[in-house]
């Protein structure tokens, strides 16, 4: 044998099972991309609702990250705040809060979101429900008045003259309670009352496009979700465009209903998830006690995720149908 080979034989090589290389895209990067994708909506929220919106976002994110760190320290687990997942939950929570809430509200919301909705179930990847939406739902149930105080970014839009008493209602509430329809342009660009990050459709779409371009989400869930809302509201003789643009549908469909952990992984499961979210949203908006139903629609469908995954397995390659 050639001498050179002998000397090489001492070298130590890593021996492990194939595949031997990995896609460069890692989970922390995806989480970071979600934050990047949420920046346009966050910036628009700050422009519309000023400094207080920024403070809510900061408190929410900081408390989310702190809660994760404290819990993991206390449980003697590795602290994983640098995977950005807690920051994403904190940011999402802030974006679905009214811009008027006192700053202890996002703090409590983040503690609930991370401490209860995420870590009680085992941390990253284990939570059956979307943590940010659980945070919001708990806040809404606990402090209903604080959680429904709205402001209009442009306090006196010309078309609102004479409705001063109603200036603290969202477009969906205005429609539901008083039959007033906010113009499309205002709804689209987002200078209306609403949660910090939910009002500006172009900002949300810009972020969603980024996530699609990066390959992190597909149009399946948002497409079926928004499509179902449009079709169903039309069937109930409502204005479908209004229902698509108003409230939290855009933010919910692209950023909450696409949450990896709490939604189905099979293609058909994702389609059914989107349709279910759409049906529940329209039902709550038209027949429920709340003017908006996106948050509860997604949470209810989250509960169905395991069942959807179980019963919507793809037809595997070469599967022979028994009936055939």
């Amino acid at each position: 044998m050639a001498g050179n080979v002998d000397s090489m034989a001492d070298k130590r090589f890593i021996v492990s099972s194939s595949p031997h290389w990995r896609s460069p895209v890692a989970t922390p990067q995806i989480m970071r991309d979600v934050i990047i994708a949420l920046l346009p909506a966050s910036v628009m929220g700050i422009i519309f609702f000023k400094l207080h919106a920024l403070l809510i976002i900061l408190v929410s994110v900081i408390f989310a990250v702190l809660t994760e760190a404290v819990i993991q320290k206390a449980l003697h687990k590795p602290v994983t705040i640098n995977d950005y997942s807690a920051a994403v939950a904190g940011l999402l929570l802030a974006l679905v809060l009214p811009p008027t809430v006192p700053l202890w509200i996002p703090a409590i919301g983040s503690i609930v979101a991370i401490g209860i909705a995420k870590h009680v179930f085992g941390g990253l990847g284990q939570n059956p429900f979307n943590p940010a939406l659980i945070g919001r739902a708990v806040l809404l149930a606990s402090w209903p008045v604080l959680m429904t105080r709205w402001v209009w970014p442009v306090s006196q839009a010309p078309w609102m003259q004479g409705f001063d008493a109603l200036t603290t209602a969202t477009p969906l509430a205005l429609l539901k309670l008083s039959g007033i329809k906010t113009p499309y342009a205002a709804l689209f660009f987002g200078n209306v009352a609403g949660c910090i990050g939910e009002t500006s459709v172009p900002a949300i779409l810009l972020g969603a496009l980024y996530l699609i371009w990066r390959g992190h989400i597909t149009l399946r869930i948002p497409g079926y979700f928004i499509g179902t809302v449009a079709v169903l509201s039309a069937l109930f003789r409502q204005d479908p465009l209004f229902h698509v643009l108003a409230g939290g549908l855009m933010l919910g469909a692209f950023f909450m209903a696409t949450d990896y952990v709490s939604t189905p992984v099979t293609p058909r499961g994702q389609a059914l998830f989107g349709i279910g979210c759409g049906v529940l949203t329209v039902m709550i908006r038209l027949f429920g006690g709340y003017p908006e139903g996106v948050c509860y629609a997604i949470l209810i469908m989250d509960a169905a995720t395991a069942v959807l995954d179980k019963f919507t397995r793809p037809r595997r390659f070469g599967e022979v149908r028994r009936s055939a």
């Binding site: 890593i14 492990s16 031997h20 290389w21 990995r22 890692a26 989970t27 922390p28 995806i30 994983t80 995977d83 997942s85 941390g123 990253l124 990847g125 284990q126 992190h216 990896y260 952990v261 939604t263 189905p264 992984v265 099979t266 293609p267 994702q270 995954d309 397995r313 793809p314 037809r315 595997r316 390659f317 070469g318």
Partner: peptide, 29 residues
């Protein structure tokens, strides 16, 4: 070029394995 094997994180159910499986299985499960 090769990734060390000791860096794995919990599954976040992103479903990418389902999308790429040429046998259309559910590798994560």
């Amino acid at each position: 070029e090769v990734e060390a094997e000791d860096v794995s994180m919990p599954c976040v159910r992103c479903g990418k394995c389902v999308e790429v499986c040429p046998m259309r299985l559910l590798p994560l499960f």
